[in-house]
């Protein structure tokens, strides 16, 4: 039995179908990614799995317990890092962690030790007795991450966990996530707009658009389906080149972006001459490995980068506007 299973999971908000007939089967000890543009239904899915939101049809089980029949049992097994700020800004960082330990059933005697470890991990030592109100957006995010991990849950939901964090911190968090999965077989569902994060952490990825899964596989396989490597071309006659390229055996995908051509080519080393011939007169070219960005673009038709920039701005805005 999987750690998380859903069958036909559906959630509507009025007319809008936020999550549409979702089937997931996440194994114990797996890091499973949900990838999708804004409004795809990732947060809604997590809220239903964490028993915070009812469902309209279908069913879902977490750690073997049905989320509707046994929500209390589910809550004993999970930890969650919310997308939006959820720390108490009138309390200090230390108080936030301590109260979390009490509420999430950590034995009183070991809470201080856990709090220390958590502060160490997210490098908030020295600031733990300041009010969260005085933290920067990234510090606040780190505190919320530390809090989600504090009670050593068996199943973790991470909703854009490293949003707004600097690269070094992000690396530390990734390493920690990998270590808890290796040591304790924690199961993780993670949403992210950072392709690098999805690529590094996730065993499998579901690309979601309009509440539906449009692709599901390991990051590598997804990249392979989209095509080997990407050749970017600036050509004189874009249309003619595109038609000619699409007819080539080795070209699995050819997309026009801002007057440039993104061509997915299998076995570039062998086939580059053929590509050049087909493209006609070339102004410039570059070759790079296919990334999840390409996969994302391929399946959803949106570029992920715009999303993440907007996401950070939105998050920071929320952080600032949350004042009690």
């Amino acid at each position: 039995m999987g750690a998380i299973e859903t069958h036909g999971l559906t959630k509507r908000f009025g007319e809008l179908v936020a999550v549409d007939n979702l089937n997931l089967d996440v194994a114990e000890g797996e890091i499973f990614g949900l990838l999708g543009p804004n409004g795809a239904g990732k947060t809604t899915t997590i809220s239903m799995l964490a028993t915070l939101l009812g469902l309209d049809s279908g069913r879902a089980s977490v750690a073997g317990y049905d989320v509707i029949d046994k929500p209390a049992k589910v809550r004993e097994q999970i930890g969650i890092v919310f997308q939006d700020p959820s720390s108490d800004d009138i309390l200090t960082g230390h108080e936030n962690l301590y109260l979390h330990g009490l509420m999430y059933g950590v034995p009183r005697a070991i809470i201080p030790q856990r709090v220390e470890e958590a502060l160490e991990l997210v490098q908030l030592k020295g600031r733990e007795d300041d009010l969260v109100r005085t933290y920067s957006g990234g510090m606040r995010r780190r505190l919320e991450l530390a809090r989600g991990l504090l009670h050593h849950p068996r199943i973790l939901f991470l909703d854009e966990p490293t949003l707004g964090l600097d690269p070094q911190t992000r690396q530390r968090i990734w390493a920690h996530i990998e270590s808890i999965v290796a040591e304790r077989k924690v199961t993780i569902i993670l949403t992210t707009h950072y392709m690098e994060e999805a690529d590094r952490l996730c065993d499998r990825l579901a690309i979601i658009d309009f509440g539906r899964i449009v692709a599901l596989d390991s990051p590598q396989t997804l990249k392979d389906t989209v095509g080997g490597d990407t050749v970017q071309l600036e050509v004189v006659n874009v249309e003619a080149a595109a038609t000619a390229l699409e007819n080539l055996e080795c070209v699995s995908r050819c997309e026009t972006r801002d007057g440039r051509l993104d061509v997915a080519v299998q076995d570039v080393a062998q086939n580059l001459p053929a590509v050049f011939t087909a493209a006609g007169e070339i102004a410039s070219f570059s070759v790079r490995n296919t990334t999840l960005d390409d996969v994302f673009l391929h399946y959803t038709g949106h570029d992920i980068r715009d999303e993440s920039a907007e996401g950070v701005a939105k998050h920071m805005h929320r952080v600032r506007s949350v004042n009690r």
């Binding site: 964490a50 915070l52 969650i80 939006d84 509420m103 999430y104």
Partner: peptide, 21 residues
Amino acid sequence: LYIVWDRKIDFLKEVLAAPLH
């Protein structure tokens, strides 16, 4: 009044996701 506030922002989710009745 504070519960209205807590519900508008995400503080309360942290409590509601805890294993508490």
